[in-house]
Design a protein around this nucleic acid. Structure first.
Lengths: 183, 183
DNA sequence: CGACAGGTAGAGTGATCACTCTACTTTTGC
DNA sequence: GCAAAAGTAGAGTGATCACTCTACCTGTCG
């Protein structure tokens, strides 16, 4: 039932995150999840839905991971970056899995919709945090800017080294907030 | 000879950029390049090398595209962002093609090496521009930061709208440079 | 003229793909 | 206690994959 589905989704997530979307066949996914092919297809009727299942599983984990924070000041806005830094350290990671899914299947409306919703949610999360700590600020512009830094960090941490990437991102984000009167 | 190879590389680039790496078969690539299968394999002996050929073709175009600039002040450092804005408008684009190639074939050393070299080159380009206009600055940190913004913009322009993404990036980058005494 | 480099068309190959199906066993709820 | 639901194993299917091969054509240069 739901237990099994979650277990499979978690396995799909880990396997896609580690090996990408192009080289993993359904048989390998089945073996990794340690279920029968029939069960796998009962919960995820096509490869496309396996991809979506993995993305949604990861998104749930990530939202939970970055939630919370000190509640006021620049630190509240920067909290997701601090958490992302640990996320990038812990999770098998070749960048943003959702974006890679979209790149691998650019013609799938299902995957496109899933990814766009997830990205929009991150941007809105920054928007809400900004309004929370500085109701007068230009939250649209700043949320866009922070979202872009978030994406840059997610994508590049592995390539340029996690420590340097985090340091550079925090430096930029603090400069941005300070220039806009948020401390 | 080289003419043919360039023509094929250009076609490979366009096709991968438009449809991604997962769904395009070699037969489709052949048809798009309008050559025989034998010729295609003569110049690119495997699918992997077709991917690398496309990436290198794109990298050549991009380096040329962002080169130059006013030669001094913050505008010199920001020049690649201005050019990237136009690039994102013109080129069929689902994000950074190199990164997607790496995500699609994370186990290929050939592709990994190609992508890492390209990314390093962009970061070094910012580093050189920073030292050129402000020899005393912390060029390592700032180059990292600008590189991350560059990656964020490249990846997110399509998803969040090219205009808003460019505006937010320039706002952040200017704040960063101003905070470090570069005007 | 004639050789040769570099092109063409397209059938063939064995592997692998996503996905289905049959037949059987275990777990769960009333 | 016994259906019904949900799991198992694993063979089979037709399509498609990356890649090879045979056979032929064409433009250039000595």
């Amino acid at each position: 039932m739901t237990d099994t589905k979650d277990k499979i989704a978690s396995s799909l997530h880990h396997q896609f995150a580690e090996h990408g979307f192009a080289t993993l066949g359904v048989e390998a996914l089945r073996a990794g999840a340690d279920v029968s092919l029939r069960t796998l297809y009962k919960h995820f009727p096509s490869r496309e839905e396996m991809v979506v299942g993995a993305l949604e599983h990861r998104d749930g984990l990530y939202r939970e991971w970055i939630s919370g924070g000190p509640g006021e000041g620049a630190a509240h806005v920067l909290h997701p970056f601090m958490r992302l830094a640990d996320w990038l350290r812990d999770v098998a990671n070749l960048g943003c899995l959702s974006r890679y899914a979209l790149a691998s299947y650019p013609d799938s409306p299902l995957i496109r919709g899933t990814v766009e919703a997830q990205k929009r949610a991150v941007r809105e999360m920054f928007h809400a945090r900004l309004l929370h700590v500085a109701p007068e600020c230009d939250a649209d512009l700043l949320a866009d800017a922070l979202f872009l830094m978030h994406e840059g960090l997610t994508e590049s941490a592995r390539l340029m080294g996690q420590e340097a990437a985090v340091a550079a991102t925090l430096h930029s984000a603090k400069a941005l907030l300070r220039n806009n009167g948020i401390n």
